[in-house]
Computed example of a mutant assay.
Amino acid sequence: MTRPFRFGVVAPLTTDLPTWRDQVRRIADSGYSTLLMPDFPQLQPAPGPTLATAAALTDLRVGTWVYASPLRPAWMTAWEAHSLSKLTGGRFELGIGTGRPGIGDELREKGMPDVPPDERLARIRETVRALRDLDGAEAHTPVAMAVRGPKARALAAEVADTVTFVQMPDEPRAEVTRLARDFRAVRDAELAVAVSVAGDRIAPFMAPPDTDPAAVRAADSLTTLPEDPTAAAEEIQRRREESGFSYFVFGADFADTFAPVVAKLAGR
Rank of each mutant, 00 (worst) to 15 (best):
Y32F: 12
F254C: 00
D210W: 14
W20D: 03
A160L: 12
P213A: 02
F183R: 13
V195Y: 05
S30M: 00
A189N: 13
H140P: 04
D212F: 10
S69A: 15
P117W: 12
P12Y: 06
D135W: 08
R201T: 04
I124R: 04
A180N: 15
A52F: 02
I236N: 05
E80I: 09
V186W: 15
P4S: 04
V147C: 13
G31K: 05
E190W: 12
P229E: 08
G48P: 01
G102R: 11
A156P: 13
A192N: 02
M76L: 12
L94A: 08
V24Y: 05
G104A: 13
D220F: 10
G97V: 03
L84R: 05
L134Q: 07
V261A: 08
D133E: 15
F245L: 06
R21P: 07
R25G: 00
D133K: 12
T64L: 07
G251R: 00
P116R: 09
T15E: 14
R240W: 04
S243C: 13
D182S: 15
G104D: 15
L131H: 03
A218T: 00
P45K: 11
R239C: 04
M1D: 00
P229Y: 08
L43A: 09
A144L: 11
F40Q: 07
I202K: 10
A11Q: 06
T141Q: 09
R61L: 09
V195L: 07
A219L: 03
L84E: 01
A160S: 11
L57V: 04
R240H: 07
A174H: 14
A78Q: 00
A154H: 13
G97Y: 02
R25M: 01
G251V: 01
R201V: 01
G8L: 02
P150S: 12
R120V: 05
M1R: 00
L121E: 10
T19E: 11
